[in-house]
Design a protein around this nucleic acid. Sequence first.
DNA 1: TTGAAAGCGCTAACAG
DNA 2: CTGTTAGCGCTTTCAA
Lengths: 342, 342
Amino acid sequence: MTLRTLAESLGLSPTTVSRALNGYGDVAQETRARVQAEARAQGYAPNPRARSLATGRAMAIGHVIPADSRHEIVNPVFADFIAGAGETYAAAGYEIVLSVMPEGDEAEGYRRLARSGRIDGLLLQAPRPADRRIALLAGLGLPFVVHGRASEEAAPYGWLDMDNRRAFARATRHLTGLGHRRIALLNGPEGMDFATRRAAGHAAALTEAGIAPDPALVRHEPMTEFYGYTAARELTGLAAPPTAYLTSSLLIAVGVRRAVEEAGLRLGRDVSLVTHDDGLSYLPNGTPGRPLFTATQAPVREMGREAAAMLLSAIAEPGRPPRTRLIEAEWVEGPSTGAAPR
Amino acid sequence: MTLRTLAESLGLSPTTVSRALNGYGDVAQETRARVQAEARAQGYAPNPRARSLATGRAMAIGHVIPADSRHEIVNPVFADFIAGAGETYAAAGYEIVLSVMPEGDEAEGYRRLARSGRIDGLLLQAPRPADRRIALLAGLGLPFVVHGRASEEAAPYGWLDMDNRRAFARATRHLTGLGHRRIALLNGPEGMDFATRRAAGHAAALTEAGIAPDPALVRHEPMTEFYGYTAARELTGLAAPPTAYLTSSLLIAVGVRRAVEEAGLRLGRDVSLVTHDDGLSYLPNGTPGRPLFTATQAPVREMGREAAAMLLSAIAEPGRPPRTRLIEAEWVEGPSTGAAPR
DNA sequence: TTGAAAGCGCTAACAG
DNA sequence: CTGTTAGCGCTTTCAA
């Protein structure tokens, strides 16, 4: 079932059929109706490969996974983000092409991807403060949007980020407001832009409260329960242990809760905890209205939808200056905080 | 930079250049070397769209995400599986096309995807015991491999699954061997094939030990910490509470641990727990050699690699009877079990 | 309002 | 061993 066979069975030329189907003007109402009816009846679907070759548009967006990755797709944040983006793409007729980028020559990988013509745009995730991929992609002329930011990148580029600094400052302020002065930060991996911003927010709020940031209370690790557990164990064992914890993910918080309880303390009474939470469907912070932890919550799925929309519009209007969007995290009160330090 | 311009700059015909580049025979050694050198020098990369149209192969594999999904990509199991599969695809020059399937007319969605020519094969995840998608895809003639099985599907089809029944029977047997007689099963969502098989393994091992399965001790829910927590709370409150727990995921186990500890019991002493663990990089069961929980462990990433290989070979040799592969879970001893019931 | 013709960039018979 | 010739299925000028 090709455009041509369909045209023949209608006694029309492929041209007319194509125009009728693609909603171009200059086709008689009646002809268009006939064509559409026949197409539906025969179950005709245009071949995207051919269409793509003819139009030059791939109708697909690239998302990249580093091959070695423990931080990308495997982190449910990215999966939820992609799921959200996928909804937007699907509505616009775009597919997602997931590219597994071999380790090593990253630049060449991106270049190949751009040249390949398989995708019309790229969504970049997990940027570092001085991420080279941004200059690279800008140079390649492939439209892209970054999920997160590269804080040290001077040139303008499109991004959508959560206000990490503000969320962590707010959480810290909440804790200083309760009288806490030793507030540990169990952050994500060092070198990630979001972790840098979170640390900055924490430090700023401490300084604001007249507290000198204590490097011994700030940790950077992959965001797993085990890390939260071991870090909190060590911290509870300090001569002057923290009275409050700020954690970068629910899993870290789970680990902290465990260590704290093993140390004979109770969360929300002896020790306070605020965590960041990406609102993951797979890792819910309790049930709605009944959170497990006090948290700053980001709508990751929604962010995926929105980033995708930004990218699609960048593709549709090349030349436009890139847009940026900063999302505010919500504040969710749970039982894990509220207590003044003992 | 097209094949033609490259050919012109070499003074050869596009045909020869194409053959030289694609490793066909019938090209002089020297010509081939010259062509390859020039291609590299000019940074030539063939246009996959054109190649795809000419060959009829898309060089891409489809993975489907239901639009409503809380069970698919958002579950890190699927993400890790896809990451593994992606490695295999990448090595063979294939991309992953992630299709977000709108809710509702699923069948039509798959049909469209098959007709679209965007993909050469499909990897199906999260099957139900009587999953209609299998007959549908078989009818469409699109090669596919199922991650998991549809137990009630009679016709042969390719699949790769973990031996859920056996893993859960083994875990249960381990617990009955310790003398436990009230062994709760906190399973995954009802209706998923894997959950059905896990329940069957649990029941079989109980029966084998002369214990009548107690429906009150078997639960089905999404695999979150909250579920593990609430279910275990209820179970610890029973007149005759379970002395051991078998859980379908690490997050459930985390919830159980919490409920159990809140009830004043200690895991591994007062109460035993064995969990299933998919070996996720994002949700590690402790660190290697130091697990948090005793577990049956499946190598999900590796399964992804292998399923992808099966699919690629099904694509390469159409007509071959479909292959199937059953993966054994490993047994990992942790501190959460080992105790006889009190 | 419709159709003919010329590609999009590549592969694959078929000759030479 | 190399080149000529047709397509793959669709879009898109340009004429009619």
